[in-house]
Each structure stands twice: as structure tokens, then as C-alpha cells.
Design a protein around this nucleic acid. Structure first.
Lengths: 249, 249
DNA sequence: CTCTTGCCTTGACCAAAATCAACCCAGTTT
DNA sequence: AAACTGGGTTGATTTTGGTCAAGGCAAGAG
């Protein structure tokens, strides 16, 4: 939901790819000198599972690029429940819009699969965006895209039931043009997927069983085999205003 | 969730307020000549309840300013269910970010309480934003704020139960500094509020009864009386990562 | 190789919300 | 005044998901 990468696409600019940030459409709009400056100010650090980078409302000094591993963005209610807003893989950035968010993180961030992150100063990015109209426009495009994703997320959490939300999650793991049978494996713990989809682990487990019965997909451990994409799509996307492939990735 | 107005605040700029758009922080950043041009291109039209302005994925030629009445933004799933993203009062705009959303509306819009809207061409706004860095920055601020609202909306729809969502809705109707007893009345039909909060009308009705029992608020028709704000706040905001007043308005 | 641990599943039960149906009630219409 | 209408409530029931408790299973530790 946050920052779209394009690892599978060509970098838009004609410039050769030199920096990790280059893999992002947004940073492809950067002139070479600014990108170098930004890159040089980055600090790459390895993290282990469970480490908390920051919590909601912390003053936002850094934004992060995920080099490897997985990061969850979450909120915690006063009575201790957690809501996961998104779980991000390598190639995504987060915290990059905090200069427009009162300088504080609107969510907490925690490493859910060990990996490396590079931290860049928000202030530097803010200077770049404020000083360069093209960058501001690129960022507008970037945030507007995130916005549409969030609209979709609101829709999902409002009308899709548990099996459908799982089906939608699986479909978004599929590359757009794959011929059946599609085999994929779950990218992180089922408990985490459950929370990402706004349900309890037990509900996830049962809903997954239900999804197998109803759509003929096969699940063994973390491996999923989809023989009949159409059946899965019909089952899940009828409860959504968009239909697969819903231009996610 | 969409466009924050500041009818209750002073317009930020030193310029006298001449145009409806002036009431918005975002448009306060406009230089006088551009604002006049935009204003001159607007078309004000009266609408009756139930009129549909556009539906999701329609090409977006206009954005709208609500002069009076109420407008709902919604999506419709393939099997005919409706999800309301937001219901907006006078002073708000919508469709103003479509130049960054593939030129199409990411939601439908329907008049839910009769009133006047002024339509302005998206292309003109797009030109302004592309040609003026300050406007781009103002729009970034504007979109980022909408983004945070959507994060909150996701949180609400994920962990709050029905009475709490209603409590939250009521609290957001309260001006920040009101001394009890606070009396307010529901701004539009209960059925619509129910849908806005992602629940059925029957559930809304029962949850409202429940909310009265649990927090001591009194409801007669569309009139709500809150004697004990603290009790209502405790009841609803414990299921949220923010606490009233959660800097909404 | 056994023990522990974390993750996942399953069962029994409960709570919340949706559904279906009937009815109420105030404001219009006829 | 009687009938109609739309919005709202209420009751009965079903469905869905949450909760609590127990157990399974595989990977890693000792």
C-alpha cells in the first residue's frame, strides 16, 4: 500500500541504475546530483526480527528504504490491540511523507523478517522536494497512488469476508500473466497475514480451509497452488469494486 | 476524510476572502490571479437528493466544491453492495486529485442532501499545480492530510465495534471546546450514517441503544445530548490509537 | 536424540453483526 | 380523514468471527 517499486520494470529514466533508491519510480524523477547527495546521506543497518524502528507519533527524522526483509507498519490502540496497516517487502520505502505529516510517524514500524534497511534524513528529502517542482510533482503522484490503495483497503476491510480477503491477498501475490497452475508460497507467517488482513489467526486458519473447499486451491504449509484462477477471482472479486488484475503491481 | 475546510478558522492568507474556494487552506495558497481564473471557470449548479454526479472510473473532467448540502463518495462491488468512503458537508471539495489518479474518479459521488455544487475543470487546476511549485507543495500537504485520515479510517473499520464507531462519529461532530451538556443533531439520515460507518441500519439502531446504556448519552430522534464527554471518550477512544480531540477539525 | 519453542490447527463455545420479517410513526398525498 | 411513503425500530434467527483451551508438528537447541 505504501511505496510502489518497479523491480520487475525498467527504470523509467535513461540513467543507469546506480542506487537502491533508483528502483522506485518516485526517485527516478531525481536529478543525478540530488540523488547522489541523498544516497550519500543514507545509513544502511541490519535488523533482526522483532526490532521496533519507531512507534506512532515519534518525531520523524528518518525515512527508510527496505533493502531486504519485511517490515510491518502498525498502530496500537489504547487497550493494547494492534492494527496492521501494511506489511512491506524489499524495494519499498516508508516514512518518506512525514514532512507533510506534522513531522511525526503516523504509524509504528517493526521488522517482521530480518533484513537490511537504509535510513535517509527526512529533512534532506524535504529540502529536495521543496526546492524542485518536478520532485514535488513526482511526490504528488506517489502519494496519490498510496491514497488510492488506501481507498481500496478501506473497501476491503468493510465488505469482504475472511475467505475473500485471503483470496484477494493471494491474488495480489500472483504476477499478472501467469498460466495455471500457479504455485506460490506465503511470504511471511500466517499469523502475520491474518493480522494484516484484520482477522484472528484462528479465523485465518479456518477461512483458508473454507477457501480451499470453495475455490479448489490447494494449500500445504506455506505453499499455495491455484489451478483455476477464474474460480478464485470470481469468488473474491465479486465483493470488490475492482477485478483482478486490479493494477496493483 | 477528504478536504478539510476552515470555516471556523481565519483564512490563513492576509487576502480578503472573495471566493468560495478561499475557505480551503489548500486554495489559500493560490496567488490572486490564478484563483480568479479558477473561480471564473467554475459552474455552480443546484442538485436534488439522489442525483449521481459520476460513478467510479468515470473520466474525471471536473472537481467539485460543495457550497451547500451533503455528498457521499462511494464504491459499488460487483455483487451490488455499496461501500461509503466518506460523506462530505459544505466547504469540502472532491475529485481535486484526479489528475494524479489516472484521470478517473476513484469513487462515485451522489447528492445525499440537496444543495449547490460548483464544478471546476481539473485540467485547469492541474496546470496551476504543475506550473507553480508553491501550489504543488500546498497540494502535497493537502493530500498527505487526506492520507492520514485514511489510515485512521482503516484503523476504525478494523478494530472498533459498532457502538464505538458511532461514539467516534458523534465525537467528531463535537466542536473541540464545548462544555457539557453538549447537544447536537445528526447531520443526515441514520441509514446513511450506518452505511458511512460500515454497518447495517438495524445494527446501527441497536448499537445506538447500546451506546446510550453504556455512556449515558441521550438520543431523541436526530438529537443527541452528551452530559458526560469523558465517559463517551473513554468508551470509544480506548479502541483507537488516538484520543479525542484527535485533531480532526 | 530428546526437549523445547514457535507456529499453526482444531474443537467447543460465545459474542457481534447480518438477515429477514413485521411493525411503527410522522409527514405527505390523495 | 384515510392511505401512502420512507425512515426507523424491534424481534427472531442465522451467520460470521472472536475467544479460550488443547493439541499437533516441525525446526532448532541442548
Amino acid at each position: 500500500m505504501t511505496c510502489q517499486n518497479n523491480q520487475t520494470h525498467q527504470v523509467k529514466s535513461s540513467r543507469e541504475q546506480h542506487y537502491p533508491l533508483d528502483t522506485l519510480d518516485f526517485f527516478a524523477a531525481f536529478p543525478a546530483d540530488l540523488l547522489k547527495k541523498l544516497h550519500d546521506s543514507g545509513r544502511r543497518v541490519s535488523y533482526t526480527k522483532g526490532q521496533v524502528l519507531f512507534t506512532q507519533d515519534d518525531p520523524a527524522e528518518w525515512f527508510y528504504m527496505i533493502e531486504s526483509g519485511w517490515v510491518k507498519l502498525f498502530r496500537e490502540t489504547l487497550d493494547g490491540d494492534e492494527v496492521i496497516l501494511d506489511v512491506l517487502p524489499a524495494g519499498y520505502v516508508f516514512g518518506e511523507t512525514t514532512m507533510f505529516e506534522n513531522g511525526a510517524y503516523p504509524y509504528g514500524a517493526e521488522i517482521v523478517e530480518a533484513g537490511d534497511l537504509t535510513a535517509y534524513p527526512v529533512a534532506l528529502l524535504a529540502d529536495c522536494v521543496r526546492g524542485n517542482g518536478d520532485l514535488a510533482l513526482a511526490m504528488l503522484q506517489h502519494i496519490a497512488t498510496k491514497n488510492m490503495m488506501k481507498d481500496r483497503e478501506i473497501e476491503h476491510r468493510t465488505i469482504m469476508n475472511a475467505p475473500q480477503r485471503i483470496g484477494c491477498f493471494l491474488l495480489r501475490l500472483c504476477k499478472v500473466k501467469q498460466t495455471p497452475p500457479v504455485v506460490l508460497h506465503l511470504p511471511y507467517d500466517k499469523t502475520l497475514i491474518a493480522s494484516r488482513l484484520g482477522m484472528q489467526p484462528e479465523t485465518f486458519s479456518r477461512a483458508l480451509t473454507r477457501l480451499q473447499q470453495d475455490t479448489g486451491i490447494k494449500i500445504k504449509g506455506a505453499t499455495v497452488e491455484i489451478d483455476n484462477m477464474g474460480k478464485l477471482i470470481t469468488y473474491t472479486c465479486t465483493a470488490c469494486s475492482n477485478v483482478f488484475p486490479c493494477d496493483n503491481e
